[in-house]
Amino acid sequence: MAGMRSHAIQVVAAAALGMALCGWAQEVGKPAPEFALKDIAGKEHSLAGFKGKFVVLEWTNYDCPFVKKHYETGNMQALQKAYTEKDVIWLSICSSAPGKQGHFTAEEWAERVKKEKATPTAVLTDADGKVGKLYGAKNTPQLFVINPEETVIYSGALDDQPGLDREKMKDAVNYVKQALDAALAKKPVETPVTAPYGCTVKY
């Protein structure tokens, strides 16, 4: 237990150093920083608890227009469904601070998740923004893919369409889908880092 904790501390320290040095999101190829967050029903989920599985971290804010684009069209829910069916853990994380856009009470959360027809493994709240900042999450939507060995294998945008034009979504290159499909087939991820787009995370 002590060994695990010290490992986690090292990882966090390395992540913090990495962020300080590059100023960008959690680096691909580096160990994913450990965290534990409660879901909207109050149940705690830790990254360590999902070791051995692929994990997607999806920074979200349901009221951000760029997030809405992917939820109102069913795009995000379809990905959540497709990959959780393949035993991928999909964690939607909201780092909106109290009083900021996208922050809800427990009751509101339950309603919103139902209304959005979201089907991730869990929706986690990070109201103090600690985990968002640990990962260097700047935008919503912004995604990370973590492999079973807890290494970050993708960091960035959902796709290559930073606009709001829904007509263009059918031609979008979905980087997260590409990364997951490659990794699940034990192939290298072709585009492991992209520039996220969207709203700012409402820390």
């Binding site: 227009p65 856009q101 709001l164 709203c199």
Partner: peptide
């Protein structure tokens, strides 16, 4: 024009 205005939040 399709444009976006932002302050604390963004409005398309």
């Amino acid at each position: 024009v399709d444009w976006m205005v932002c302050l604390d939040t963004c409005v398309p």
